[in-house]
Design a protein around this nucleic acid. Structure first.
Ligand SMILES: [Mn+2]
Ligand SMILES: [Mn+2]
Ligand SMILES: [Mn+2]
Ligand SMILES: [Mn+2]
Lengths: 233, 233
DNA sequence: TTTGAATTTTAGGCTCTCGTAACTACCGGA
DNA sequence: TCCGGTAGTTACGAGAGCCTAAAATTCAAA
């Protein structure tokens, strides 16, 4: 009785694997063993072992040496975890005064301990928010998630006006730094200059035009934006 | 390196054992294997195994065939869990609209996943409450807990006026029933009658004197009260 | 004092999840 | 086509936490 069945009891480990695999799959290709291992901070053989169990449980498909892909059931379970994680982050930030750089760690644990009912009560208390504090979309109860396409700040042409939409929540220090620049989802700015050879980008915040910020290339690659106003030229 | 050391990483299982042992010790004698097994719903040999590990870790003392007692370190860890449990229960009830009969189950999981910081933020948001929704005292951050002495309703003499102070939170159905009688911590009433041979007690709520309630002996033993006004006789 | 029921511990085994070491497959040069 | 580096898998083992069955201990009643 280990095949694909409904109402599985998923352990904390399994939930974290599914969520990590879901996120790795987002860039199109199957999730690879070493990438999963890196995301979860475990050794590659541990991943091979878990992948075997998850594929026997019908949560993913494994092509040896090629990677894994979630099944419909696995994707549903993963999206449930993503919803939990992001609702918890939003609740802690909005209702309990957490900073956006410290919620991820707390949510990483709480996501496994909260009941569906608690998540729905939190979402209700927040007015069913659509985005978490880092700009990531919150899947609906039934697993629908907004698919977005962004441009990294590093790729926004000089002269354009853009709005920051989303930032990875994984690195607390980076979040603190981004925040110290006055940047968070929803803030818009003009791209004033960019140095060649993967050099820094200079932006001017729309809200405080006097304040210019210089942003290194690597950081600019992690700031996901939409272009609001294209330079007339 | 398994002796008494600071900053242990306690698993969920260990935290539940320590909390259960703390609660069993409350009635004066060492906690016994079968009582621990009953409280945690595991088999007695599982308790023996865990007790061995916990005593090697310096969290309790074990006299074979006689029972266990928490060490100072174990008691501190247990009280930390009790605080977490009761703060979470109070938060869920006060801020998220939970009923008092459903918070225990949720808190039983969350107590292991919340950080100290989250507990303090919840307590802050609640104004540092002293009691949980079931009337149980919330230990302070440094492990101080109010010691109370109550009389079971079953032992309050007829004619006295008493106030309900505390109810066990373990049985959801019992809590629902108690609530349906209009009883919760802080409610006061007069004991109107009691039948002999462990028979039912009749009370009249002070707030609604017209409403009389008949309460069976077993239930009356679980309702912990203080006498407010002794019958003049 | 003996005995037997109840309690507790020991013995042995299972699952889950992780690790290290050794082996295998893949793939891009030479 | 071969070769070597990288990535992935298999083999093996450890520890936590649970179980059942069997042995040991306690304690009260006969
Ligand atoms: Mn997690
Ligand atoms: Mn986030
Ligand atoms: Mn618990
Ligand atoms: Mn309680």
């Amino acid at each position: 009785m280990s095949g694909p069945s409904k109402g599985q009891v998923l352990t904390r480990s399994i939930e974290d694997y599914l969520k990590a695999i879901y996120e790795l799959e987002q860039d199109g290709s199957p999730a690879q063993t070493s990438a999963i291992a890196g995301a979860l901070d475990v050794a590659p053989p541990s991943v091979s072992g878990m992948v075997k169990r998850l594929s026997e449980a019908g949560l993913l498909q494994h092509v040896p040496y090629r990677g894994v892909q979630l099944t419909e059931e696995g994707r549903k379970a993963a999206l449930r975890m993503v919803r939990r994680h992001r609702v918890v982050e939003t609740y802690l930030t909005t209702k309990l005064g957490y900073d956006w750089d410290s919620v991820h760690e707390e949510a990483e644990r709480l996501e496994h301990a909260v009941s569906d009912e608690l998540i729905e009560r939190m979402a209700m208390a927040l007015g069913s928010p659509r985005y978490d504090p880092h700009g990531a979309p919150i899947p609906s109860r039934d697993g629908a998630i907004e698919q977005q396409s962004f441009v990294a700040l590093a790729d926004v042409p000089v002269g354009d006006v853009a709005e920051l939409r989303m930032v990875s929540d994984k690195d607390a220090e980076r979040l603190r730094f981004i925040g110290s620049l006055g940047l968070k989802p929803g803030v818009s700015f003009e791209v004033l200059a960019r140095q060649p050879f993967r050099g820094p980008t200079t932006i001017g915040l729309t809200a405080a035009p006097s304040k210019e910020q210089v942003i290194g290339h690597e950081l600019a690659e992690s700031l996901l934006c939409v272009v609001v106003e294209r330079e007339v030229g």
